[in-house]
Design a protein around this nucleic acid. Structure first.
Lengths: 192, 192
DNA sequence: ACCTGAACACCGTTCAAGT
DNA sequence: ACCTGAACACCGTTCAAGT
């Protein structure tokens, strides 16, 4: 693993400034925020943005990778405090809430669980899938989750729940309701 | 209800040509297909497109309103052939499949079940909600669907299932699986 | 009454010229 | 080695001029 040469001081400054501004812009305007505008607000030429982040996806991921890591870390906090099934539900609720509040995050989470998505596995995808696997397997061992669903499927369905909640009121007020409908099923007789 | 004066012959030709081309373009490129390109391919000036369809949403809805009506009509066909619960599931599966195959349709269906969405209730929204209500209420009377879910919620959750299926493989191969996970729940012990 | 297409503003992307 | 910003292509939207 060869060390990456440290960036030149001005390059590093630009890089970090771009990330800050991009995180704001994506949160406010969604995944399609203007790249030109981001470059301008960061005080750099548009070419500099493309040098550091060749695609919109690369910038989106770089801007939110720390938030994704924080989300993945919360999985273990819930696991330490609650029984496995409840921990999974609480965590999925938090993931949905984040996906709705921070507008660009939903698209990033979506691409993280897309099969055959772009360039192999992204860092964000790996973090989320690892966290989901720990909670899912624990819940399955406990017997509170069906044995025939995969962690990535649970993440995809949670993404669907976030979409449905967004349609309901533009915010996240229905997340818990829709998540529990998913857990217990639409047919009568499920667990309350 | 005052009769709308019939359009001038050339206006009507343009209008219909625009609808044809738009349906193709949205199906191929999704909801963000270039309006300029649609006008060009229809052989009209861009101003003509805006005259007939002041917003992208208006064009999208006009281009697909017949497909939406056909979808709504299928609800009654399923209801005539199957018990209520099965009819609902089959219909939702067909809706999801359509939403994935015809790219612009998913966005339209989404906005049709969005609360507080744009201009009051759209024609598409009304058709879909009416059809859903008939199936949902029948299934609830039969006892195969929880009594505490509303038709529009079922449509939103189906939209979420379509999203999740799209993430899974870009096509619709997981629709039936995800739909039945939604019906029966992720906890063990649901109906097979 | 309706259509056209130029005009304007905006955005993504590349690349020659700079330091 | 890195940055800048002009240049190009493209798109959405409006509106004066046409028929």
């Amino acid at each position: 693993m060869p060390q990456v040469r440290p960036m030149r001081a001005d390059a590093r400054r630009n890089y970090e400034r771009l990330l800050e501004v991009a995180a704001e812009a994506f949160a406010e305007h969604g995944e399609n925020a203007s790249l030109d505008d981001i470059a301008k607000r960061a005080g750099v030429g548009s070419g500099t943005l493309y040098r550091h982040f060749p695609t919109r996806q690369a910038l989106l991921e770089a801007a939110y990778v720390d938030r994704i890591e924080a989300m993945a870390a919360r999985a273990d906090e819930f696991a330490a405090q609650l029984p496995p099934g409840a921990a999974l539900v609480e965590w999925l609720g938090a993931v949905c809430a984040g996906a709705i509040q921070v507008r660009g995050l939903k698209a990033l989470l979506g691409s993280a669980v897309t099969d055959g998505g772009s360039v192999a596995d992204t860092a964000c995808g790996t973090h989320m899938k690892d966290a989901a696997r720990r909670l899912v397997e624990a819940a399955q061992r406990e017997g509170s989750l069906r044995g025939d669903v995969e962690p990535v499927e649970v993440l995809r369905l949670a993404h669907g729940v976030a979409s449905a909640s967004e349609l309901a009121d533009g915010q996240g007020r229905q997340i818990r309701r829709y998540l529990s409908l998913l857990m217990d099923g639409l047919r009568p007789g499920g667990q309350a």
